[in-house]
């Protein structure tokens, strides 16, 4: 069998192609697999965002002509800037979307320091890699801290809360709901809080594991492993993951907070 394929046209696919050491798509094995992991992770995140789109469009939108002045109600989908309008240490100040904007800039900036670390790795510049990895880790922790505050605020709710009417054993009873959990939500329909917890929670988990990976990379850089290995490709691979986390936040920011 093998003797029949020794023509010139098969030169592109000679035996060496199948003996290993060839990089398909000009990317190393690890990098290619990271890309394929990221595309599968994209599907998971898209599933959540698609669900958000479906559920949101199946609820009425707030219309001043019908509903009057805006107040929290489970009859329509809330306006994000009315929900996310608090900043730590500024109690009672109406600052719509300011805090989430700060979070966005923190994550973009930590993405920049990551790419600076990758660039330094290409030049085998170990101190610079260490420096920028530390900044990236700091940015990750800062973002996680912000998210913890955001969740805490969302769960505890505002002072006024939202009064709802419901039928309890055949009679209309009115009571006030404070904050949000998976079954009750003062800001709007319960599905809104559920999606908030699922989407930002899933993203936060990614940030957390990204920070752990970054710390591992920092440790291995600081102990000189990559310098001895002769290349800093691990920084690049984890960098891909970290940028992906930033990218997801860009989409979450738009579809959850802005639109």
């Amino acid at each position: 069998m093998a003797t029949t394929v020794t023509t010139e046209s098969t030169e592109l696919f000679d035996k060496k192609t199948w003996m290993g050491g060839v990089e398909p798509m000009n990317a190393s094995y690890g990098k290619l697999m990271m890309w394929f992991f990221l595309i599968s992770d994209t599907f998971t995140f898209s599933a959540l965002l698609v669900t958000y789109g479906l559920i949101r469009f199946s609820f009425p939108v707030y219309d001043p002509a019908i509903h009057g002045a805006f107040q929290f109600s489970n009859l329509y989908w809330p306006i994000p800037e009315q929900v996310y309008n608090s900043v730590p240490f500024l109690h009672g100040v109406d600052a719509p979307l300011i805090f989430v904007g700060i979070m966005t800039f923190i994550l973009i900036f930590s993405s920049v320091t990551m790419v600076l670390a990758v660039e330094a790795g290409h030049r085998m510049d170990r101190p610079t890699v260490e420096k920028y990895m530390l900044w990236t880790i700091l940015g990750g922790f800062a973002f996680l801290g912000c998210q913890a505050w955001e969740w805490s605020h969302f769960i505890h709710g505002t002072e006024q809360g939202m009064s709802i009417k419901e039928i309890v054993s055949g009679e209309w009873v009115s009571r006030t709901v404070f904050g949000a959990n998976l079954t009750e939500n003062q800001y709007g329909p319960p599905a809104f809080a559920d999606l908030f917890f699922f989407i930002t929670g899933f993203h936060g988990t990614h940030v957390f594991s990204g920070v752990l990976l970054n710390m591992l990379i920092f440790y291995r850089t600081a102990t000189g492993l990559y310098q001895r290995r002769g290349h800093y490709e691990m920084v690049e691979k984890v960098g891909l993951y970290w940028h992906f986390v930033d990218l997801v936040w860009v989409f979450v920011f738009t579809f959850f907070y802005l639109v």
Partner: peptide, 13 residues
């Protein structure tokens, strides 16, 4: 898929 499901949501509404 996103577009299709958003339209689907509108039709549920």
């Amino acid at each position: 898929l996103l577009l299709a499901m958003m339209l689907e949501g509108g039709s549920i509404f």
